[in-house]
Amino acid sequence: MAEILNSLDTQNILMALLVVGLVGLIAGIVLALASRFFEVPMDETITKVRECLPGANCGACGYAGCDEYAKAVAEGAKTNLCIPGADSVAAQIAEIMGVSAEDVIEAEAVVKCNGNCNATCNQFIYDGINTCQASTTLYGGPSACKYGCIGCGDCAAACPSGAICIADGIAHINTKICTGCGICAKTCPKKVIEIVPQVARTIVLCNNKEKGAVARKNCQNACIGCKKCELNCPEKAITVVDNLARVDYAKCTGCGICVENCPTKCLKVVDFVAIENGK
């Protein structure tokens, strides 16, 4: 045992231990002091609010992620902006901030297009990169209607909850899964997806702003701007602007008179609240 110890260069080992130990010790002390003196006080309410949020970072509130929204709330932003979190999260945040709870205005994404394979056709065969973004740059896309859904599925790829599928050439949204975050609406190069409040009862399934004859020629299901819905609506909830019907969701009761009168059936009565509740 003693021989082994003698054969080792004890002084060198001790020196190495000492130097490395000292470097480590100095680094540790400096870090400890730095974290003490350069401490940034974190607002406790921010942490608390952040814990309530779902953490999906979807951006539906209008801020860049849940952390940013938590900061904004602490500085006085509205407490009911988290759409995926719904009323329960809004109530928790309101309790932390000490304000009265407000209901979240739930929203749903709606594809304003019914130009399926039977209703419209392609002007040319597109054989390039298979995204809406890319095909739009080539003469506005292969579809005859330059306002409608292309059906390459950029929105389906962007949707964080997987609520969108492409069928029959257009995008379809599963209302039950959709949180209304609006990422699809931002992704769509044709701006054909609209975020509507969940209380909406009638939606327009067309985005075409061309004159009636042209729109009809390109797609059988297009809104031709005939104003029959505007004239027949008992609540005066529908107006035709730029050859396209628009619904005032606050006035609409979902009576369905407009749908009966619509020659191209581009209007649809919906009940998002009932679908969400599983009826």
Binding site: V30, L31, A34, S35, F38, E39, V40
Partner: peptide, 10 residues
């Protein structure tokens, strides 16, 4: 680590 702490502060 030190740089991160200092940056966060200043």
């Amino acid at each position: 680590q030190f740089v991160e702490i200092v940056l966060k502060k200043f």
